[in-house]
Simulated scan of single mutants.
Amino acid sequence: MTPADMVLTRQGMRFMGRMWPCTLGRGGVSAHKREGDGATPVGLHRIVGLLYRPDRMARPTDWAVPIRPGDLWSDDPGHEDYNLMVRAPYPHSHETLRRSDPLYDLVLLTDWNWPRAVKGRGSAIFLHRWRRPGFPTEGCVAFRPDHLHRIAGLIRFGTRLIVPTALT
């Protein structure tokens, strides 16, 4: 591990010498992640992208990509675009990235089951804003909005998110 690694613990995420409160998936952590189980997958995941809403904030880093109207994320394990960003209209199962609420205003993308997704292993694991403290996600890692902005400014492409089998 390096100081630039993000490491999940029972107390939150340890990163850059401090502890950041966060919430995980409603299914806890799992070494056997499956689509729809609500679990945060165990493993070493690299940050491979940063998305943001340009109508709601300034570009947070020079490598951030704007979320445009019609941007979606395919979560249909039966489709060839599974676990990829797609554009509307898209008739298969998906998540809307440009939401009316602020949940996805800033999204860090991990390489979980990407870029060549294994069907049913679970779609994207994002780092995004939490709904409220302690409210679980569908498998993503969620943070207080100001913390997420600070983390986005500190990480680099390829920063590692480490999810241990047993949170200590």
Rank of each mutant, 00 (worst) to 15 (best):
L148W: 02
R99K: 12
P164I: 08
M85N: 03
A64N: 03
T168E: 15
L44E: 13
V118G: 00
W73E: 07
L167G: 09
A39I: 05
A166S: 13
L8A: 09
R132L: 07
P21W: 08
P91S: 14
A117V: 04
L161E: 09
H79C: 05
D5I: 03
A31K: 09
R121V: 00
M13K: 06
D76F: 03
T2H: 10
L167R: 14
E138K: 00
L44N: 04
L108I: 15
Q11L: 10
C22N: 03
P66F: 02
R121I: 00
F157H: 15
G28T: 12
P164L: 11
L84M: 13
R116N: 12
L97Y: 00
G43H: 10
R87N: 02
D81F: 10
M13R: 04
W130S: 02
L84N: 12
I125E: 00
D75I: 15
G17E: 11
L51Y: 04
G134S: 01
D111G: 06
L109W: 05
H92R: 15
I67H: 06
W130A: 02
A4G: 00
P145M: 04
L84P: 01
R98Y: 14
G122E: 08
Q11C: 04
D71Q: 11
P41I: 14
H147M: 13
L108K: 09
L97D: 06
V86I: 11
I151F: 01
R99A: 05
V48N: 10
R46H: 12
P21Y: 06
W114G: 00
L106F: 04
H79A: 13
E138T: 05
H147K: 05
S74R: 06
G25A: 12
G78M: 07
F135T: 04
V42S: 02
T23Y: 03
R26K: 15
T2M: 08
L50W: 03
G122R: 11
Y104P: 05
R160A: 15
V118Y: 00
L154V: 01
P3H: 04
P77K: 10
A142C: 14
V107D: 01
R14V: 14
V118E: 07
M57D: 01
Y104L: 14
P133H: 09
R18M: 12
T137V: 04
D76E: 05
I125M: 11
L50E: 06
W114T: 03
V118P: 00
T40S: 14
R26F: 09
G49E: 12
T165P: 08
S100Q: 13
K33S: 12
V7T: 14
R150S: 13
P133R: 13
R129G: 00
A124Y: 01
T165H: 15
R98T: 01
L50T: 06
E95C: 09
S100N: 13
T2S: 10
L51I: 00
V65K: 01
